[in-house]
């Protein structure tokens, strides 16, 4: 097995009185899909945010590609999120003023890709995610499933190494949820991206290669022998 892509160890994080993470640990290999499961409030999202360099843990180590995210400057982490990570959330992630195409092109533009080229690539991803028809529409004018596929397209457009998805199908019906998961995992496999998938739905988690359970801020790594 090759060296892990992202390793987190001994993560602690508290919000005021609430302890959200206690000695959490996680390892993600190149190209694998890891489901993070656990009951509500167990610390899944916090773990995901830590792994993605959005939230700084109080203690612990998160190494991506040989660099420790915990000690990294905010600017460096932002750059990393821009270039190496992609994000899909439950909802409310598209900029309402921009068209879907512009939304997908946004990460590229943030990475200084010229507008024309960025929008062209964005268009290809919309096609790939089977939502070409909404390219010119605003997020308010598309369905939840379409919006979510646009979000997946946006997460993938920079060809990130890791995609972080927090309840990506949470607001969708089964059919659309499955569709988003199928497209997300297929695209991730094709581009070699690893996926960290926070979900509470077993059928969604079944798209993963492996699961990690979080309870009361602790991770349980269940390496069940096949």
């Amino acid at each position: 097995m090759s060296a892990p892509l992202l390793v987190a160890e001994g993560l602690y994080r508290r919000f005021g009185e609430t302890v959200a993470l206690v000695d959490a640990a996680l390892r993600i290999d190149e190209g694998e899909v890891v489901a993070v499961l656990g009951s509500s409030g167990s610390g899944k999202s916090t773990l995901l945010h830590c792994l993605a360099g959005i939230v700084r843990p109080d203690r612990g180590r998160i190494v991506f590609d040989g660099q420790d995210l915990v000690t990294m400057s905010d600017a460096r982490r932002s750059a990393l999120r821009r270039d190496a990570f992609g994000f899909v959330f439950q909802f409310g992630q598209l900029v309402p003023e921009l068209t879907c195409l512009e939304n997908v092109a946004l990460p590229l533009r943030l990475a200084r890709v010229p507008r024309r080229a960025a929008e062209q690539r964005a268009g290809q991803w919309l096609e790939r995610l089977e939502v070409t028809e909404v390219a010119g529409k605003r997020p308010g004018e598309v369905s939840g499933g379409q919006g979510q596929r646009v979000a997946v397209a946006r997460a993938l457009v920079t060809r990130p190494r890791v995609i972080f998805a927090d309840e990506p199908t949470g607001a969708l019906d089964s059919l659309n949820g499955e569709r988003v998961m199928r497209l997300l995992t297929e695209a991730a496999r094709d581009t070699g991206a690893a996926v960290v998938l926070v979900t509470h739905e077993a059928r969604v988690a079944a798209y993963s290669d492996r699961e990690v359970v979080v309870r009361d801020g602790r991770t349980r790594n269940l390496e069940v022998a096949a």
């Binding site: 489901a35 499961l37 077993a202 059928r203 988690a205 079944a206 798209y207 993963s208 290669d209 699961e211 359970v213 269940l222 069940v224 096949a226």
Partner: peptide, 9 residues
């Protein structure tokens, strides 16, 4: 759950 998930995968 792990056992279930294995089958579901």
């Amino acid at each position: 759950r792990a056992e279930h998930l294995r089958l579901m995968r």
